[in-house]
């Protein structure tokens, strides 16, 4: 393992998309009957993949909001009515699409970035150092991975709910829990950390951080030790090795870890739904969840489909742009050894 010069499994997806596409390299070619049989199979699999995607795209171009009574996978009419409606007035509340987009963006951007910055040194320590309690500490960090953030929602709610900015009247402000209003004065609530994007972001980091440590450690494990050993012989101290050798090598994976955090929390709705009450703080995925409602009859189908496409699109674009790094990042941690 330590003699590897290049990280294993790099560019998994690039290889997947580009390798040996004409099959000419070995000179063998398929007999026609076999070729046709395989074509039928691969086409059926392709249809299975495209079925729900075509269904939702077709719905989103429909001008009618009621449910389609016949199955349609190819749009016969191209109406942008639903997209227009969703962009113009996404919810019943007076909140614009741009505001929702901004909330979603800042929330997922912040969670991805903070989790990355906090996680990177821990990932390095777990990957490279041996120390007392190493196994115990690593189990402590990784077990929450198996426990979704929803499991900690109540204590996080209470914790964040105790941070409040109050106007006690007469120009006196109090910042709970450090200072309180005079006993007997109720005060006016100005800011509640729990009911804010900042608070939800803090709560979400509780789930994003262990994942970032795990994902980064898996990648750092594949960076060969030779460079670091050479630097150590040249007299570099461990901090110099980390900042000047390991960090630059890990930049692609830092980007992937950030975007996986971004994508994961772009889609997250449960925590936001529990914490946030003010419509101007809502996010896109909360809006999508809100649209599905309790009864299928009440779903505005074309708008729901259009919103799905809008919520999915940025994620799809980021994923496709970074695909060669993302899949290798997800598998290197696991495939090692």
């Amino acid at each position: 393992m330590a003699t590897n010069v290049e990280p294993k499994q790099k560019n998994l997806l690039v290889r997947f998309l580009t390798m040996n596409t004409n099959g000419a390299s070995s000179g063998r070619s398929l007999p026609l009957w076999k070729q046709l049989a395989l074509q039928v199979l691969t086409f059926v699999i392709g249809f299975e993949v495209m079925f729900p995607i075509l269904y939702i795209i077709t719905l989103s171009f429909s001008p009618k909001s009621e449910r389609p009574s016949t199955l349609q996978l190819i749009p016969t009419e191209f109406s942008f009515l639903a997209y227009g409606q969703v962009l113009d007035r996404p919810t019943a509340n007076p909140v614009t699409f741009i505001e929702l987009l901004k909330n979603s963006f800042f929330l997922s951007f912040g969670v991805g970035l903070v989790a990355l910055l906090v996680a990177v040194t821990a990932a390095y320590a777990f990957s490279r150092f041996k120390f007392k309690l190493r196994q115990v500490l690593m189990v402590l960090v990784f077990v929450p991975l198996l426990m979704p953030a929803v499991g900690l929602a109540t204590p996080l709610y209470l914790l964040l709910n105790s941070f409040k900015l109050m106007d006690c009247g007469g120009g006196v402000w109090a910042f709970n829990p450090i200072t309180m209003c005079e006993p007997g004065v109720t005060g006016k609530l100005l800011f509640n950390l729990r009911d804010s994007l900042l608070g939800v972001g803090i709560a979400m980091i509780s789930g994003a951080l262990p994942f970032a440590v795990w994902n980064l450690k898996g990648y750092l494990d594949t960076i060969p030790l030779e460079l670091e050993e050479a630097a150590a012989i040249d007299g570099a101290d461990p901090n110099q090795i980390f900042f000047q050798i390991v960090l630059p090598l890990a930049i692609p994976q830092l980007a992937v870890t950030f975007f996986l955090g971004f994508i994961g929390h772009w889609q997250e709705f449960a925590m936001s739904w529990l914490f946030l009450t003010k419509p101007d703080q809502y996010t896109l995925s909360m809006t999508l969840y809100n649209m599905t409602g309790q009864y299928a009859n009440s779903i505005p189908w074309n708008r729901f489909a259009a919103m799905s496409v809008i919520v999915a699109l940025p994620v799809a674009v980021i994923y496709i742009a970074l695909q060669k790094y993302i899949t290798s990042g997800l598998t290197t941690g696991a495939v090692k050894g």
């Binding site: 997806l13 997947f16 998309l17 993949v49 495209m50 995607i53 939702i56 994508i263 772009w266 889609q267 709705f269 995925s285 999508l288 969840y289 799905s308 919520v311 999915a312 994620v315 799809a316 994923y319 496709i320 695909q323 899949t327």
Partner: peptide, 10 residues
């Protein structure tokens, strides 16, 4: 590759 790209929510 497309199913990997679509968010689970959708």
């Amino acid at each position: 590759i497309l199913p990997v790209v679509v968010p689970p929510l959708v």
